[in-house]
Computed example of a mutant assay.
Amino acid sequence: MDTAPAPGQAQLTFRHATEDDVPVLLRLVESAYRGDASRAGWTTEADILEGQRTDAEGVRDAVTAPSGRMLLAERDGEPVACCQLEHRGSAAYFGMFAVKPELQGAGLGKVIIAEAERAVRASWGVSEMHMTVITVREELIAWYERRGYRRTGELTPFPYGDERCGIPRRDDLVFELLVKKF
């Protein structure tokens, strides 16, 4: 799917990522969440987590999952955003959402999530989208709530001790399930 460009911007295109895209996807995800580069955007987790956000194996698993895909958004052939979509019965799971930090705050995230929602309804006929967000990320949760997601109160512990998910800088991290019904 293509979207109409904003004035002065090239058209945004979407495609399913392939295994060849794993290095690019990994850099995109890491840049949006970890390290000093992530501070250029507002989605950084650098103050609550150090280390990596994911690894090449995790990205490859998302790309090749039989029940899912990675949606890649490009502008002029340059990757600018991505998200993981996974079919889970009557719902789809939305994860590994990343927008290049220097492009955050300009409305691109709204376009990506809307396309993800459209794609899972069209491809899988699901009636809702699920995601998990670290509860201390109040600004991010509020952003999702403005897009129709609701907090469920269903919590999952953060995987402390599993450095594949990062190294926590605090001891109160927990995920909450957010849901949007279509």
Score class of each variant (00 low, 15 high):
1 M>Q: 13
2 D>R: 13
4 A>H: 02
5 P>W: 12
6 A>S: 10
8 G>D: 06
8 G>Q: 07
9 Q>K: 11
9 Q>G: 02
10 A>I: 12
11 Q>S: 14
11 Q>E: 14
13 T>D: 05
14 F>V: 10
17 A>N: 05
20 D>H: 06
21 D>N: 03
21 D>M: 04
21 D>E: 01
23 P>F: 07
26 L>P: 12
26 L>N: 11
27 R>I: 03
28 L>C: 10
29 V>Q: 10
32 A>L: 12
36 D>T: 08
36 D>E: 11
42 W>H: 12
47 D>N: 09
47 D>A: 06
48 I>K: 05
50 E>P: 03
50 E>Q: 15
51 G>E: 04
51 G>F: 04
53 R>A: 10
54 T>C: 06
54 T>P: 04
56 A>N: 08
58 G>S: 09
59 V>L: 06
61 D>G: 10
62 A>W: 10
63 V>T: 14
63 V>W: 12
65 A>S: 14
65 A>N: 14
66 P>H: 13
67 S>N: 15
70 M>C: 14
70 M>L: 08
71 L>M: 11
73 A>K: 10
74 E>Q: 11
75 R>F: 00
76 D>T: 07
76 D>L: 07
78 E>D: 08
79 P>H: 05
79 P>G: 08
79 P>A: 14
81 A>T: 11
81 A>D: 08
82 C>M: 13
82 C>L: 04
83 C>M: 06
84 Q>V: 01
85 L>T: 09
86 E>P: 00
87 H>L: 14
88 R>S: 01
88 R>G: 01
89 G>K: 10
92 A>I: 05
95 G>H: 01
95 G>C: 08
98 A>T: 15
99 V>I: 15
102 E>F: 14
104 Q>M: 15
105 G>Q: 10
106 A>G: 11
108 L>I: 14
111 V>Q: 09
112 I>A: 03
114 A>V: 07
118 R>Y: 07
118 R>M: 07
119 A>W: 11
119 A>D: 10
120 V>L: 04
124 W>D: 11
124 W>A: 13
125 G>L: 15
125 G>K: 15
125 G>Q: 12
126 V>I: 08
127 S>G: 13
129 M>F: 03
132 T>Q: 09
132 T>V: 07
134 I>A: 04
136 V>G: 00
136 V>D: 04
137 R>T: 01
137 R>S: 06
139 E>T: 15
139 E>P: 11
140 L>N: 03
141 I>P: 02
144 Y>W: 03
144 Y>D: 02
147 R>Q: 14
148 G>P: 06
150 R>L: 01
155 L>D: 00
161 G>M: 01
161 G>Y: 01
164 R>S: 12
165 C>K: 12
167 I>L: 09
167 I>S: 09
169 R>T: 06
170 R>F: 03
171 D>Q: 12
172 D>C: 04
173 L>N: 10
176 E>W: 09
177 L>H: 10
180 K>N: 02
180 K>H: 07
